[in-house]
Design a protein around this nucleic acid. Structure first.
Lengths: 345, 345
DNA sequence: CTAAACTCCGAAAGCGCTTTCGGAAAACGC
DNA sequence: GCGTTTTCCGAAAGCGCTTTCGGAGTTTAG
């Protein structure tokens, strides 16, 4: 058990002694209580900065009964699971937390599949005041659990049943509808979808949006034009291959993520189709390297850092006493037009 | 200030009372002290699990004087800065930490450029027992600072001066030499390098390795074949463009990262060159989507999760009292052969 | 059967900070 | 000039756990 480091930190009692007041007084001075004379507050603060005083977060947390920490569980790293946004998300969260000097505790699920267990353990470890959950499923055991646990939380995305908790989601349905409309406006009439399992709520919503977009463009929905794939380039590749094999193949396909779109483009190219003319594909995510695929990928984008910030702000408000149900926000995604789409040839 | 959550945790005093012993005894029983009768230890542990007791980490930390937390500062998110590995790194760290039930505190640099300040603040916040630093520069102010601060740390990569601290690095020099050798074996004699600033130590080492590889293959080093670029696809694109414009353009180019390689391939293709035959390119990073570029990218790879684990183990050993200088490890990268390379045409 | 050696646990003092309570001193009111 | 507020601070009791110390009770040695 590592003992205190050589550089013994200066404690509140030392600055109290230096100024000639009690610890309690010094504490209140530092924390902006109104029952402290301005003159003594000044002296205390001077001494504090002179001695380079840093309050012990541990002691404060114990005394206050709040750990001032919010938790984030890294998405399990499975085949289906490469989430390109965690870094940005963490950045956003961390940025928002910095304003209050709160901490971000990151953990991972140890045994694959034991995700819920991880949340459970984290919840009653007492190490976090609240949680941010991402990669939401349509029916997500994590939010079920958290709702019943009493631990404050906010989710990125939303479940099928949106009631009773705080969330912030992109309007996936609208985004998919927009993508279809964009393609229809270009003149496409045979537009397909490579989606993921409706198990993921964002996928479910994008499927809905796809159908709505079709309807709004006066296009017919065809079951063979909607194929489900794992959330990976491999998945996209296989799905596109099956789409191309159709007797009257689609002239455009919207993909549930950029990674899937990459795979889809590869498949098309392997079949000798030129993406952007013979066949259009649009992705979803706005990954930076999408600008460097061949051809550059047209895609939907969202500001993940800002999303992380906002999620954190929401969580903090809830921790301050706000009702979680007050926070149910939907943001819009934005189309980045590059070169993987064009009028049908 | 958020008060304790409804679910008041059960405290040590409660389980002590239940068993009929003192808090101190209960504590020692739970922590495996030898001066506790096996029978009472059993009773205490039974009571603890019956009441679902979770020791308060905050209280323990205060009493023990150790925060049981290690810190990680997210790489600044600048143009040059997309580090595709943070997620995996965090996973590895977190996994290793779980064994001891320690925590991972993640933070970000608030104002761009104020990176050192962030480390400074983190160091004397008392919130972490140690730090893991990544993205090491040849002359890295962070390790300078940490060396003098007394805060234990371990670095991924290494600085130009490798003495006096713990690090774990990939053998970048060897990897680059291997890449050159691979290309030379294929028959290339005009192999170029797109590197990053030697400011990054891994880049500097890869440059060295490139030259060594050239020498070992009996090839001449030419200054115009070595071009420096920002660590992005854009950077690779521009660099490749200049390489192609050379009177006797190279037939192969090794790129400092996969992202750079992607840009480089694009540039070549825009000039009408077929990558893999007209010109070979090899990347470095082993990013998953490299398998789906066109053509699939030949690259060097390393296991970042395992790296994160090992870094953490090292740090924990240091925190247990081991001497940092004992830990200076070099691992090898592995070539993944795909389709962006081939014999010169 | 007594002295020495163990076993095992209670008591108590922290760890470094927060917060409530009460009261002395100073300011105010008329 | 005396009672009433106000202002400001000290005292003290925590927060929930750890760890040292010492001493009862019990076992062993001789």
């Amino acid at each position: 058990m590592q003992k205190l480091s050589p550089r013994r930190a200066v404690s509140l009692s030392q600055i109290a002694e230096a100024v000639g007041v009690t610890e309690g007084t010094a504490s209140r001075a530092l924390n902006g209580y109104s029952d402290i004379a301005e003159s003594t507050r000044q002296k205390v603060m001077d001494a504090a900065s002179a001695l380079n005083y840093r309050p012990s977060p541990t002691a404060r947390r114990l005394a206050r009964g709040s750990v001032e920490t919010i938790g984030y569980v890294l998405p399990a790293h499975g085949p289906d699971q490469t989430d390109p946004f965690v870094t940005e998300m963490l950045n956003g969260i961390s940025l928002a937390l910095a304003d209050r000097d709160w901490d971000l505790l990151v953990t991972t699920v140890e045994k694959s599949g034991a995700e819920l267990e991880t949340y459970q353990r984290l919840a009653d470890s007492g190490k976090v005041s609240g949680l941010i959950v991402t990669r939401t499923l349509s029916r997500d055991p994590r939010v079920e659990f958290l709702k019943s646990s009493g631990l404050p939380f906010v989710v990125h995305g939303r479940t099928a049943d949106v009631k009773g908790y705080a969330w912030l989601d992109i309007d996936n349905e609208q985004a998919a509808a927009d993508a279809v409309k964009h393609l229809a406006d270009l003149g496409h009439t045979r537009v397909a979808l490579i989606c993921a399992s409706p198990y993921y709520n964002f996928s479910r919503l994008r499927i809905d949006g796809y159908r709505r977009g079709l309807a709004e463009a006066g296009l017919q929905f065809r079951t063979d034009y909607s194929v489900e794939a794992p959330l990976s380039a491999e998945g996209g590749l296989a799905a596109m291959r099956s789409l191309i094999a159709l007797p009257d193949r689609p002239t455009a396909v919207v993909c549930v993520t950029d990674l899937v779109a990459i795979g889809a483009m590869r498949a098309a190219q392997k079949e000798g189709l030129r993406v952007g003319s013979d066949i259009s594909v649009v992705g979803y995510d706005g990954l930076p390297f999408g600008a460097f695929t061949d051809p550059p990928l047209t895609t939907m984008t969202q500001d993940v850092i800002r999303t992380g910030r906002r999620l954190t702000e929401i969580l903090l408000e809830i921790l301050d006493g706000a009702s979680p149900t007050r926070f149910q926000e939907i943001w819009n995604a934005r189309l980045i037009r590059r070169a993987s789409d064009g009028p049908p040839s």
